[in-house]
Design a protein around this nucleic acid. Sequence first.
DNA 1: TTTT
DNA 2: TTTT
Lengths: 179, 179, 179, 179
Amino acid sequence: MAARGINKVILVGNIGNEPEMRYMPNGNAVATVSLATSDTWKDKNTGEQQERTEWHRVVFFGKLAEIVGQYVHKGSKLYVEGRLQTRKWTDQQGVDRYSTEIIVDMGGTMQLLDSRQGGDAGGYQPPPQPYQQQAAAGNQYGGQPAPAQQPMQQPQNRPQQQPQQPAPNFDDFDDDIPF
Amino acid sequence: MAARGINKVILVGNIGNEPEMRYMPNGNAVATVSLATSDTWKDKNTGEQQERTEWHRVVFFGKLAEIVGQYVHKGSKLYVEGRLQTRKWTDQQGVDRYSTEIIVDMGGTMQLLDSRQGGDAGGYQPPPQPYQQQAAAGNQYGGQPAPAQQPMQQPQNRPQQQPQQPAPNFDDFDDDIPF
Amino acid sequence: MAARGINKVILVGNIGNEPEMRYMPNGNAVATVSLATSDTWKDKNTGEQQERTEWHRVVFFGKLAEIVGQYVHKGSKLYVEGRLQTRKWTDQQGVDRYSTEIIVDMGGTMQLLDSRQGGDAGGYQPPPQPYQQQAAAGNQYGGQPAPAQQPMQQPQNRPQQQPQQPAPNFDDFDDDIPF
Amino acid sequence: MAARGINKVILVGNIGNEPEMRYMPNGNAVATVSLATSDTWKDKNTGEQQERTEWHRVVFFGKLAEIVGQYVHKGSKLYVEGRLQTRKWTDQQGVDRYSTEIIVDMGGTMQLLDSRQGGDAGGYQPPPQPYQQQAAAGNQYGGQPAPAQQPMQQPQNRPQQQPQQPAPNFDDFDDDIPF
DNA sequence: TTTT
DNA sequence: TTTT
């Protein structure tokens, strides 16, 4: 993917929900999380400590989505590098709505900062296959509404392909170490 | 401004509009622009060249806003470093709406990449002097709706203070070189 | 500090040594650490897992140096944002030598990623109050030689002002939360 | 290439020399340039404008090196994203020496900011072929000594493969648009 | 709405 | 050695 211009987002923060998994018709995973960053400052007048939490909707594709689905949980601290993308959609009243997300695909990277884990899950994987549209479901966590516009599929559609929790064999990944 | 987590956006792209200037009650400037980045790729099936342009709503504050107001124009190429912020607002139907912007204030930086100009307008300078301000008006440019929430004033309210085009005196800035 | 051009380094990695503290004649702290990042890849021929660790010499100034001196230890995981600087010096044989460091001062930021701590120690705060310091020792880990070229002062000059380990009062910092 | 930790450098600046081209035994290009960034500040005492230029040795590999060789010239303004790497070598006196470079390969990106050109030459190309070691030659440009440690070959070894100036056929690249 |  |  070539590009004109630079579109880069770097976030470090904690995840506010369990990753929401979806699957493309071709089986490729998509994982969505809400990541929090916060600014703190002292009020000029009252001198009181203020804090504002920013919630970022982060969407992982491909291999990174697999890793997120397996190892990222509510409360996990992540380093994320992706790009900004604003999707336009139309709500039930026919009004144009916009949702901005941080896309993390093969051009981005991710790193789990929890525990004794870590490492880059950066991406130079072959590009994801295009796929076909389908169902939809809401996102209950994101700081922004996230109408279903991208096809998804329930995880149970492929339980045998990717065991949910403990990663028994990393051979599912094309690299020895997924992160 | 301390922070928990990292919230950083880096963009390089061209400006699609003349900067929209507003002024705070205390006189501080706010400049908003739309910055384009684009991805290009070859369609897997047709082999045709594809392109998707992403428009970013970038909001500059303080001294950087002044510089943008004076030197940035439709078509300008900019390097921008800021942070993501999503504002919530309620539309006329009482529906919650969200608008995500890249905020560039003293914690960010900007650089004009056009012409023989250039240089960093990054910000660790003492705060710009407050000056005059007034009314308010909507934003017609952003890729996303941007209801007027912050006080603003028409540029014509202060033409004598800040000449529009050729910068005759850099003494308006507290640094020798504004950018 | 204005600039022409962008000079930015972002690192996430673990610290290989106890921070080496120095103090300026005016009391400002300087903390130097060696931070490791590593690339791993599979050998094209043997198929064996390869790893190369890169050691980065990171130098913190001012308030960030204070925080590093108090809270960063061998093994700590850090997010660091600074700028590249290559110093030239002459060795005992009169040969020009160069040492490249990542400088983290008020234009940069740092974040401890260990434990339940975290938060940005980025810097737009007024300069930290000078205070006393203590020990000093060489760096056995850095990938590059680091001859003492900047003025320093023995730590014992200020022990009573800033207790070494557990931070009893964060009021020593001008922000409520140092990181 | 997976990684533990993040090692990222972002530079925007002008090139101080014509790119120095080398070629791997397998024909892969390597381009080295010196890129300048500078900080300016006002002297606290004299009030005079000060400037310090930092020179960065940037080494491009693969397709990006080809593009640099064709389109980058002395004075060109570049956006560069790469990683830090310090090489160790031994000088003629048997003393260990170090040279830090910014490596820009498939994990990095580059963008020409001159003229009406531009665009991302980012990298998701297939990994470069491993190659065999060979000859050596000095580097006359870098801000730091750069003893030959990597095999190279004189450009004249393949002049017929890659016409020097106007890019007649972009088919040499695996993308429609090289930048 | 910009750029190429 | 570049730029402004």
